[in-house]
Design a protein around this nucleic acid. Structure first.
Lengths: 83, 83
DNA sequence: CAGAAATATGCGCTAATTCCGATATTTCAT
DNA sequence: ATGAAATATCGGAATTAGCGCATATTTCTG
């Protein structure tokens, strides 16, 4: 239920759930993102060495995007004007 | 300003601004994140092939994190229960 | 239960990160 | 302007993604 994405496995899980919600197979998503089914599989299982552009391609194909946010209120306060 | 992070350069810019707001040099941030100054430099200038775990290490060192969100209201509606 | 569809795994390959150790080059105070 | 700090760049070594192609394995459907 959370859009929290603090670790590669969490990111992978979210991608997997979004993909399924859209009724896509890994192959179909791969085609949309310009990637192979195997690559989607690796990402969904939490490959920490995946490349940034690869993750971004998958997110874009699912109509998703990253947002960078403070982890805590303290961080939000310290970084005000930015976040 | 926006915390939008749709592309590697945008992500790099945000990281750079957050780092400066915290008064850290690239070397200092690198030390916190377990990375080299050179690597921080590459990330901040928008290297699209940076590894996911590398980006996550930098964000964590800055007390930041990723959030995955829908790009549009339409997407949010289609993916409800997830986002 | 059978057959198909979907997902995970395998090998060889190329490209590119990141590391290490130095060093240009740019930026910034005084 | 000058020196110091900060950032960008270079060669080499190691590691690994993602590709193509093929296949094992799990999951779903009838």
């Amino acid at each position: 239920m959370s859009d929290l994405a603090r670790t590669p496995p969490q990111i992978g899980n979210l991608i997997r759930r979004a993909r399924k919600k859209r009724g896509l197979s890994q192959s179909q998503l791969g085609e949309l993102a310009g990637l192979r089914q195997e690559t989607i599989s690796l990402i969904e299982t939490g490959n920490p060495a995946a490349k940034l552009k690869t993750i971004l391609a998958v997110l874009a194909a699912l109509d998703l995007e990253f947002r960078i946010v403070p982890r805590s209120k303290g961080a939000a306060a310290e970084l005000e004007d930015i976040f």
